[in-house]
Design a protein around this nucleic acid. Structure first.
Lengths: 341, 341
DNA sequence: GTGAAAGCGCTAACAT
DNA sequence: ATGTTAGCGCTTTCAC
């Protein structure tokens, strides 16, 4: 159906090679010949086939992106960062949403491999599972550079751009302690995620450095979903020795926590204090003034893509791994305050 | 770097054709030969090239998706719907974010054309611009089926899945009128969008049917951005003859409106009533109880993709256009109430 | 400046 | 049941 390069060659009365030259702006072509070819291209509404070109060049111009949840604006912003940089370099994005499932992650990687992507950007769902790590190691062995964004893999010798989760939650919990909170609960993620482990670590470190002993009951494990944040917060609210503050370690769980508070007609910080990891724009827009640790979503995407470009441009050598860590900023809005009653 | 089909053939001591047969499960292959080939595939960590396959078959397995704003969860959910159905049929998604810009939309379409996508799903940014319509008409002429999702194009003879915007806002405004509101403002979208036009039309129709004359001052034109919702709401609040209710016609603008209200320390419905078009999950989670017209995001994606599949499976004939319209549901939460002071 | 021809990795007749 | 071969649409040497 669509015109091919030889249709154009025929129409312009030249050879394929010449058409290819004007298509790629390579080699010398007489101005007059060029005109003829350009006209034929227009007449035929011709667009070169990236497929044929890729096969011939033995290289595509697409990169693969795998995120855990496309409906989470955090990842939407990350993708914007990625595409911004990718576009500047003529790269297309093949997108997959893993739905926080390692199985789907692996399937996605397989599909991307078939498409001979130049490189891959991934926020892995689990850092404790052998399967995704192996699968991704495979890519590297094939010479396909991999950049992790804000998430780790087992055997962590992968390049990537990360957020200093330990520092982030350490700062957050310290802010609570400075307000004289002693009973601080944390709602953290699944323990097969290094991110969750680190956020917990920052929490514990802050407590210990301040000689506050760790109360296991105050450590609640969610799964990054709104529901888990909601349920765990209800659990917290029904404790006999109720915490005076909650640290929620992901945006969806924070929303769930606030839902629970709202249902109980509790306000922050009057009734209970709260600091969140990750921004939820709407909170502050609505004047809720929730303090939070700001993980730079768009920046993660931009820097991650730039890192990948470095690998693509240099002769890629999977021995030299490169890790960049961004330190998140603690934004205090008032919800951390301890209101004496 | 990566192994090819002939590496496998050599390793297994058979011809390319036989390997191809087991790869595609076509034709007869002796069980024993098959075993050998499968083993070679494993040994070489071989994955067939979708590129080469596409070129040979003269058909890819990717479809293009263009949305106006990937950071908007509405589109995230829509994409989930699309990918769910696409995956079941072995289709990959090449994603583009138009950033609400026709120029970017056109560039995206060009990139997708180069990749010889099977079909395209698009939520166009403007329905008044000749350029995107022409560009997309072009695709159809090439035999590439196009499905619009929740957005129109100039010369509207395109297939697609839509939301009954007129009915949606008609219902919403009627609900306000039933509460005895007479002064109702609308914050609608850019007038180059048919969606915005329709939402305005429903508004006007409801007023007229109830013998409420239309006050031009109460019709405010935004651009779907949070900022515009915010600014226009501030404008409303500073009117001498202030409306008693606002109808916001997109989720981001609703957030902006609520930001303005919150800054003015105004509550809904006590100080001013409000109904929104599109759900903002967080509102209701936080107990804000904002009434809204529910546009079914995931469903739009699923049905849109299914429609595209129909076109792909049947001999595609661009003469028979097919439009499906979903009627949105009005969800009343209380924010529409008129509180007498 | 331009053309001829090989080759990219695969599929699909057509042979055998 | 398996092999041979042409061809998909393009790029890229190498000639001329």
């Amino acid at each position: 159906m669509a015109a091919t390069i030889s249709d154009i060659a025929k129409a312009a009365g030249v050879s394929l090679a010449t058409v290819s030259r004007v298509l790629n702006n390579s080699g010398y072509v007489k101005e007059e010949t060029k005109e003829k070819i350009l006209k034929a291209i227009k007449d035929y509404n011709y667009t070169p086939s990236a497929i044929a070109r890729s096969l011939s060049k033995k290289q595509t111009n697409t990169i693969g992106v795998i995120v855990p949840d496309i409906t989470n604006p955090f990842y939407g912003e990350m993708i914007r960062g990625i595409t911004k940089v990718a576009e500047e370099h003529g790269l297309n994005i093949l997108l997959w949403d893993s739905h926080e499932s390692v199985e789907r992650e692996i399937k996605s990687i397989q599909a991307l491999r078939e498409h001979r992507i130049r490189g891959i950007l991934i926020t892995p769902t689990s850092s404790e599972d052998d399967r995704n790590a192996e699968c991704i190691k495979n890519l590297e062995n094939l010479g396909i550079p991999v950049v992790l964004i804000d998430g780790h893999l087992k055997y962590s010798n992968f390049s990537g751009i990360f957020v200093d989760n330990i520092q982030g939650s350490y700062d957050a919990v310290n802010a609570l302690i400075r307000e004289h909170h002693k009973k601080i609960a944390i709602i953290t993620g699944r323990m097969n995620s290094k991110t969750a482990q680190e956020r917990l670590e920052g929490y514990e470190r802050a407590l210990l450095e301040n000689n506050i002993s760790i109360n296991k009951n105050y450590i609640l494990y969610g799964d990054y979903s709104l529901e888990s944040g909601y349920n765990l917060t209800k659990d917290i609210l029904s404790m006999k020795d109720k915490p005076t503050a909650i640290f929620t370690s992901s945006n969806q769980m924070t929303v769930g926590a606030l839902k629970a508070l709202s249902e109980h007609n509790l306000k922050t910080p009057e009734d209970i204090s709260l600091i969140a990891f990750d921004k939820v724009d709407i909170f502050n827009i609505l004047g809720l003034n929730i303090s939070y640790v700001d993980g730079p979503s768009t920046e993660l995407g931009e820097i991650g893509m730039s890192l990948l470009l470095e690998f693509l441009n240099s002769e890629y050598n999977n021995k030299e791994e490169k890790k960049i860590t961004l330190t998140p900023t603690l934004i205090l809005k008032g919800s951390e305050k301890l209101i004496k009653k």
